[in-house]
Write a protein that binds this DNA or RNA. Sequence first.
DNA 1: CACCCTTTACTTAACGTTGAGTATTGTATA
DNA 2: TATACAATACTCAACGTTAAGTAAAGGGTG
Lengths: 180, 180
Amino acid sequence: MTRLLVLGMLDTKPMSGYDIQQALRMTDAERWGGVLIGSIYHALKKLEKDGYIAIDKVEQTGHRQKFTYRITEEGKKHLKDLVREALTSSSVQYPASLYTGISFFDKLSVEEARQALEQQQITLENEYRSVQAGWKEKKAAIEGNIPPMVQLVFDNMFATIRQQQDFVEKALIYLEKNDQ
Amino acid sequence: MTRLLVLGMLDTKPMSGYDIQQALRMTDAERWGGVLIGSIYHALKKLEKDGYIAIDKVEQTGHRQKFTYRITEEGKKHLKDLVREALTSSSVQYPASLYTGISFFDKLSVEEARQALEQQQITLENEYRSVQAGWKEKKAAIEGNIPPMVQLVFDNMFATIRQQQDFVEKALIYLEKNDQ
DNA sequence: CACCCTTTACTTAACGTTGAGTATTGTATA
DNA sequence: TATACAATACTCAACGTTAAGTAAAGGGTG
């Protein structure tokens, strides 16, 4: 994903790794794309090695240098392929950690399990609020006309969290029932 | 996750890497846990190095050797921690590839984007059918009383896929609207 | 009993991720 | 104008993942 995100950013204009970092933070891509700083620089080097991007310029500020990259013709073609692939390939992401925890929940006492699941509820509420804050910020930044696709993505994020909340709630109900 | 899955398996009885592989396949953990063969052996070596498991025996069949591992006392404690952590830590998994693809969908022509999303629908239908098949198999294997937590997990898997289908459908509707 | 296919059992190297670390430059404040 | 804090800009090594590869043992068939 990092590859696609980085290449897509560079398709709009030449940028440095740090610029990309900032831009991705703006779009909240860090959250839903799961992009980490280190990966960006790795992706830049790989993309350059593969010829999909090239160094546009190197700025020297004192003892410090800043590399700006631009996309190549090859890169533009590759970008289309990556978008197609991203849209096509399997998109389902199961919450593996929760499933695994649930499948071994009898390793804990009922009390411990309940505490853990209640902690999970708090985590989910925080996530919800955090996405909500990002959403508000986004709406404020764009002012007025929100692109429908962005709306869709945020709707889906909220729905994803709600579904997880539902799951945890049901698990807790089952725990209580078993406790009596 | 692989660590937890492997350690959890070994808590029931001593096993070899291959045994674990088979057992995980049974529980469909390969799908929802995203566990790959290679990771199992890596996890075994790491867990042994950390003292959470130990080599139980080495069987020699001709020129071939089979390592059976067992959990240690340390490992049992660690297992509880891992379960707690899995239940507690953030469980939300956004479909990053789809979000990223959507956010760059204007790199493709409307026609190309539609084709890609229609392909995604097919992928999702296949996933649904595949989970359904696993579910049927599971029910047949257990005969009668399905553990409520297993039921919950499968319900959640189905819900996750349906939500994704909904998302893709809405994206397609928007595409059509924009095409006119 | 020769053949081939499947199952068993693990190895390997390339690759990407992770997150903490480093070091410089700009800026506000006392 | 000293200094401390934030922003800029990347580096790095440890780690885990990934998928293909290897290779022997078992088992059925003509």
